[in-house]
Simulated assay, not measured.
Amino acid sequence: MRVLITGASKGIGRTLADRLAAEGHHPIGLARTAPPDFPGDFHVADLADVDATAAALDEIVAAGAVDGLVNNVGTAKLAPLGSVDLDDVARTYDLNFRTAVQVTQAVLPGMLAAGRGRIVNVTSLVTLGTPHRTSYGGSKAALEAATGIWAGELAARGITVNAVAPGPTETELFRKGTPAGSEREAWFLDQLPVGRLGRPAEIAHAICFLLSEDAGFITGQVLRVDGGASIAAA
């Protein structure tokens, strides 16, 4: 299976690529910076640039149909309401949501022709109401809405669309806004019934399940991999 992963150079995306390769699949990475030891094909593009993204996608689909897609790339700017920068809103929605739409539309013809496909959108616990996440949470909530919309449109064509919503996970993106030992980290840990942060490998495991052949009867769902944090949010 050829699986395209956006934001594949580090964090959850890179961990997922390593796992897929170990299972005999062919990961295709798409991100701004190429790691030196990526276990598959890697295409360099600034996903904030629509034209650069389109050019990279043309190369990817020209090489063959994409069987699975993981819309993983994301950016976050934290600010309480009253201090939200409108330019940050636009940039966050563009990278977190527009990119997913653009990439999905590029690989969709191949999936339709094959009569099969797997699409997994990586969203977030913060869609349930984490403070200071107006832009990030809003963009990920849009992606969760798209998950249901696309699932309904594509179910009869053999293509499933689901989302994985991680809780606080030990990644570079999380640490940008939540330094180790900070009050913010303590706040997050207090919301986690399991008492610890998630590991990228645990998120990758859930994504791999939804990409698998055995997950063909699951579509339009948001799988919350969050150490029970969504229980506390509810």
Score class of each variant (00 low, 15 high):
residue 77 K to M: 09
residue 87 D to P: 01
residue 70 V to Q: 08
residue 80 P to W: 09
residue 84 V to A: 08
residue 97 F to K: 09
residue 69 L to Q: 12
residue 72 N to L: 10
residue 80 P to H: 11
residue 57 L to G: 02
residue 47 L to N: 04
residue 78 L to G: 00
residue 57 L to H: 08
residue 104 T to I: 04
residue 83 S to Q: 15
residue 91 R to I: 08
residue 73 V to P: 06
residue 109 P to G: 05
residue 86 L to E: 15
residue 50 V to C: 07
residue 56 A to C: 07
residue 54 A to T: 15
residue 68 G to Q: 11
residue 77 K to Q: 14
residue 85 D to G: 07
residue 97 F to R: 10
residue 83 S to V: 01
residue 52 A to R: 15
residue 57 L to R: 07
residue 55 A to F: 05
residue 61 V to Y: 05
residue 77 K to T: 14
residue 46 D to P: 08
residue 98 R to M: 09
residue 91 R to F: 03
residue 74 G to H: 01
residue 99 T to L: 08
residue 58 D to V: 03
residue 84 V to W: 01
residue 80 P to F: 15
residue 75 T to F: 03
residue 60 I to L: 06
residue 62 A to V: 05
residue 94 D to Y: 07
residue 99 T to C: 12
residue 75 T to M: 15
residue 79 A to P: 00
residue 69 L to F: 01
residue 60 I to S: 06
residue 86 L to T: 15
residue 94 D to P: 01
residue 91 R to P: 00
residue 60 I to P: 02
residue 111 M to P: 00
residue 107 V to G: 06
residue 105 Q to P: 01
residue 54 A to Y: 07
residue 107 V to F: 04
residue 93 Y to K: 02
residue 59 E to K: 14
residue 90 A to S: 13
residue 94 D to A: 15
residue 95 L to T: 10
residue 49 D to V: 11
residue 105 Q to M: 10
residue 46 D to Y: 14
residue 91 R to G: 08
residue 48 A to V: 02
residue 45 A to R: 12
residue 48 A to C: 01
residue 50 V to T: 15
residue 62 A to F: 02
residue 45 A to W: 14
residue 106 A to L: 10
residue 45 A to I: 11
residue 53 T to S: 10
residue 106 A to P: 00
residue 78 L to P: 00
residue 76 A to G: 03
residue 107 V to S: 04
residue 67 D to W: 02
residue 54 A to N: 14
residue 89 V to S: 08
residue 100 A to D: 03
residue 67 D to Q: 06
residue 51 D to M: 09
residue 82 G to H: 05
residue 74 G to K: 00
residue 71 N to V: 12
residue 50 V to P: 05
residue 64 G to I: 08
residue 60 I to T: 04
residue 102 Q to C: 00
residue 50 V to W: 11
residue 107 V to E: 12
residue 60 I to E: 09
residue 97 F to W: 13
residue 53 T to E: 14
residue 96 N to L: 09
residue 102 Q to G: 00
residue 85 D to N: 12
residue 57 L to I: 04
residue 96 N to G: 07
residue 109 P to L: 11
residue 91 R to S: 14
residue 48 A to F: 02
residue 109 P to N: 11
residue 83 S to F: 03
residue 76 A to P: 01
residue 51 D to W: 02
residue 79 A to W: 02
residue 82 G to C: 06
residue 113 A to S: 05
residue 100 A to T: 03
residue 104 T to P: 00
residue 73 V to T: 15
residue 92 T to H: 11
residue 107 V to Q: 01
residue 91 R to Q: 15
residue 52 A to M: 08
residue 80 P to N: 12
residue 104 T to M: 06
residue 92 T to F: 07
residue 72 N to T: 05
residue 60 I to N: 04
residue 70 V to K: 02
residue 74 G to E: 06
residue 72 N to W: 01
residue 50 V to Q: 13
residue 81 L to Q: 03
residue 100 A to F: 05
residue 103 V to N: 11
residue 55 A to K: 14
residue 70 V to E: 04
residue 73 V to Q: 13
residue 99 T to Y: 04
residue 48 A to D: 12
residue 108 L to T: 09
residue 99 T to M: 12
residue 45 A to S: 12
residue 112 L to D: 02
residue 99 T to N: 08
residue 111 M to I: 03
residue 106 A to S: 14
residue 102 Q to S: 10
residue 64 G to C: 10
residue 56 A to Y: 04
